[in-house]
């Protein structure tokens, strides 16, 4: 059975059909991609999968348990982390502190968690390990707001990794990045592959096609196509598009 499964999700906002009969399965250890044109329902779908919205119909299953309608906090505690299209960081804090405060061990420590974190060798080592994974090992003491955009994104991923999730959702990680930033982010995501189960929503097809094991195409609030990048590329219209020209 897949690690994460959505079965026949339906969602209406007032007089709009936002999701119509969406079924998705994300296998453990894989990178699953979700792509679709603007307004197709990708982020809304993400918000249902991560508990921000409750579907009108349908079920969401994680690791064998039904998590439909549970709060985002409860879902996070089960081992699901997510990043956002718009970044959430503590701008005035250092890179180290942003990650340290996200560690579950730190959070349990009351009044001055960051002070405690600096004094705890095991925690410091853990933060450094996470920062090395995302390539921010050299930036430990920099203030978050002073980081270039691409590195802020990497820091956000580090914050999500701090909870040691089984499943990590990334919402449009390449948004706002230039081609250089994209290449570096692709490298980072590639490194994470295998360490954590990944689900990436992306508008940038090139990025997804180079990284994903399986891709679901969402349009009109529905899954209109599904398959490996190689399978999706056999479509004659895809072959003739910009996407088909990608090696």
């Amino acid at each position: 059975m897949a690690l994460f499964e959505a079965r026949e999700l339906h969602l209406r906002f007032g007089d709009r059909v936002v999701l119509e009969n969406i079924s998705l399965a994300f296998e453990a250890g894989c990178l699953s991609g979700i792509m679709g044109p603007n307004g197709a329902g990708k982020t809304t779908c993400f918000n249902v999968l991560t508990g921000r919205y409750r579907p009108d119909r349908g079920r969401v299953m994680f690791d064998g348990a039904d998590i439909t309608g549970r709060s985002p906090q409860a879902i996070a505690r089960l081992g699901i982390a997510r990043s956002f299209q718009l970044m959430n960081l503590f701008d005035e804090f250092t890179v180290f502190e942003n990650v340290a405060i996200a560690l579950p061990q730190t959070r349990k420590r009351g009044a001055d968690p960051i002070g405690v974190a600096y004094g705890d060798a095991a925690l410091v080592a853990e933060v450094h390990e996470i920062l090395d994974t995302v390539g921010l090992g050299e930036r430990v003491d920099q203030i978050a707001k002073s980081l270039p955009y691409g590195e802020r994104r990497a820091l956000e991923i580090a914050v999500a990794l701090a909870s040691r999730p089984k499943l990590l959702f990334l919402d449009e990680p390449t948004a706002g990045l230039g081609s250089d930033g994209r290449a570096r982010l692709a490298e980072l995501v590639h490194r994470l592959k295998g360490q954590v189960t990944l689900v990436v929503i992306e508008h940038d097809m090139e990025f997804l096609f180079s990284l994903a094991d399986v891709i679901s195409v969402i349009h009109w609030g529905q899954v209109i196509a599904q398959g490996s990048p190689a399978e999706l590329r056999t479509n004659p219209w895809v072959k003739n598009s910009n996407l088909g020209k990608l090696a």
Partner: peptide, 26 residues
């Protein structure tokens, strides 16, 4: 339980991005 008739009112077809192929297959 599921729509019997699907009415697509002027769907946007853009040949550059490849979505068109997925739309037709859908």
């Amino acid at each position: 339980a599921y729509p019997v008739v699907h009415l697509f009112d002027e769907p946007q077809f853009n040949t550059q991005d490849g979505y068109i192929g997925f739309m037709l297959d859908f």
